[in-house]
């Protein structure tokens, strides 16, 4: 044991390291044991649109509740009840498992005067 002589700084670095390593490993094991192998489960929530110049910007949030990451997620929003009805779409590179990603779509008409239907058209498996 004589070789295991460290000063307080080295012991505290070791302590923090051990905590970090065990914490991360523990989290991964817990995560692996509790997560099921479900495909990406995506949902879209549409926020309040606001006017910028001649366009209306509508924020959307795509959440992935599944245990796999979705790639190239294609989201389409249809605005009905306005003259004319409009379709806008946006593509998100990745929506990781258990994560959320934000995006914006634009409309020419005021989205408040109609209703928006959001749909995930499809995604790829990375």
């Amino acid at each position: 044991m004589k070789n295991l002589e460290k000063n307080w700084l080295e012991w505290s670095v070791f302590g923090i390291s051990a905590l970090l390593v065990l914490g991360m490993l523990g989290y991964l094991v817990y995560n692996g044991a509790t997560s099921t192998s479900s495909p990406p489960l995506l949902s879209v929530s549409v926020g309040q649109g606001e006017q910028h110049g001649a366009q209306y910007l509508v924020p959307i949030t795509v959440s992935n509740a599944g245990s796999q990451t979705a790639e190239a997620v294609q989201v389409t929003l249809t605005l009905t009840g306005t003259q004319p009805s409009e379709v806008s779409s946006v593509q998100l590179n990745y929506v990781p498992r258990g994560s959320q990603r934000q995006a914006w779509v634009t409309f020419h008409s005021d989205p408040h005067s109609g209703s928006i239907e959001a749909r995930i058209e499809g995604f790829a498996q990375p």
């Binding site: 080295e10 670095v13 070791f14 390291s17 051990a18 905590l19 390593v21």
Partner: peptide, 9 residues
Amino acid sequence: IEEMGIGLL
């Protein structure tokens, strides 16, 4: 372990 911890940090 120490090196791993420094790597993580």
